[in-house]
């Protein structure tokens, strides 16, 4: 009954605070859209130069790319160097060869998608070009690659901030003291917060994931439900961590000060940036970052199409994070009331 009342109260407060609601729901979409445009997104179809290709292949390619016919390999190569083309596909000594310009991973990916679509279309032909790059190398990440991590990051960041500030405000305005002058148990307070915020965290997670997949067209092969599950767990971790840390903050401003300490390192270790070059002992820090597990799971689902089995370990770690932060929250509330 108390947990339900607390949940209801938080929902009511949220719904009446339109700006906070907007921050929770609109801000992540806004930033995600910005990132999408900055990192290329879908953009225009790739431009592929065709040298000596059969008509069937050219028309097949044209479904997902602009195809320009060239008389010789050298002519095509010159345009590729001038960045007028994204790739050149040619039959060289009887074998198909694909040369990618390669400086923009999102363009390369678009070319590869177009070519692989062609492969599927004409399976019998066994069109398996030898792939080489003019610049860069294969497997460079792009929005499709770090997008899933971004989804998790925004959920984490905004819920962390809001939960931390909301919990802190309860303390500074005295409502926490007032609440704890009632016979509510400390675990009921934490559980009520989890449920109340959980409702909005889930709604936010659903909105961000659907926006990224259906509006921005982020690459996605797995199950949307798994995405929601991982995102929810990630936001619950953010929620419990935010409320826990707010116990150590005296003002809203001090909550903001946790951002560079708690949020920014997580962004670095979450897989947004390659960690291969990092010294091994520093690399171990990733295991302490909830966002790393969330990002790993989201990436697995969206890019590699992993099912529940493939991300079970990540999910287990996130559950452990949430539960331990929640338990620490119950303990931290002792600071407010002895029992």
């Amino acid at each position: 009954m108390r947990v339900r009342a607390l949940t209801l109260r938080i929902c009511r407060q949220f719904i009446r605070d339109k700006r906070t609601l907007a921050l929770l729901f609109v801000a992540p979409l806004f930033i995600l859209t910005l990132v999408y445009f900055i990192f290329g997104g879908s953009g225009s179809p790739p431009k592929i130069g065709a040298v000596g290709l059969p008509n069937a292949i050219v028309s097949g390619l044209e479904a997902s790319a602009d195809v320009v016919d060239y008389g010789s390999w050298d002519e095509a190569l010159e345009d590729l160097r001038g960045q007028d083309l994204d790739a050149v596909l040619a039959l060289r000594s009887g074998k198909p060869a694909l040369l990618l310009e390669g400086s923009d991973p999102s363009r390369s990916r678009a070319v590869l998608l177009a070519v692989s679509a062609l492969q599927r279309q004409s399976a019998s032909q066994a069109l398996q070009p030898e792939i080489s790059y003019l610049h860069g190398k294969a497997g460079m990440s792009s929005f499709d690659s770090f997008g899933p991590v971004m989804i998790g990051f925004f959920s984490f960041f905004f819920v962390f901030l809001l939960a931390g500030v909301a919990f802190l405000r309860e303390r500074t305005t005295g409502t926490m003291e007032r609440l704890l002058a009632t016979p509510i148990r400390r675990q009921e307070v934490v559980l009520g917060y989890l449920c109340g915020f959980g409702v909005f965290a889930l709604a936010q997670a659903a909105l961000i994931a659907c926006f990224a997949v259906y509006v921005l067209g982020m690459y996605m092969t797995g199950s949307i439900w798994l995405i929601l599950l991982v995102n929810l767990l990630l936001t619950l971790t953010a929620l419990t961590l935010g409320t826990l840390l707010s116990a150590f903050a005296g003002s809203e401003f001090q909550i903001i000060q946790f951002v560079p300490i708690v949020i920014v390192p997580q962004a670095f270790f979450s897989g947004l940036f390659p960690l291969d070059g990092m010294s091994p002992w520093l690399h171990k820090l990733t295991y302490l970052m909830p966002l790393y597990y969330g990002g790993d799971a989201l990436r697995g689902i969206m890019i590699r199409g992993e099912g529940f089995g493939g991300i079970a370990a990540d999910i287990a770690v996130l559950v452990v994070f949430s539960l331990s932060f929640a338990a620490l929250n119950v303990v931290a509330l002792r600071k407010q009331r002895a029992i």
Binding site: R9, R12, R16, T173, G174, E177, R178
Partner: peptide, 8 residues
């Protein structure tokens, strides 16, 4: 201090 929920 009046510990009340202003939104409610």
């Amino acid at each position: 201090s009046d510990a009340l929920y202003g939104e409610l």
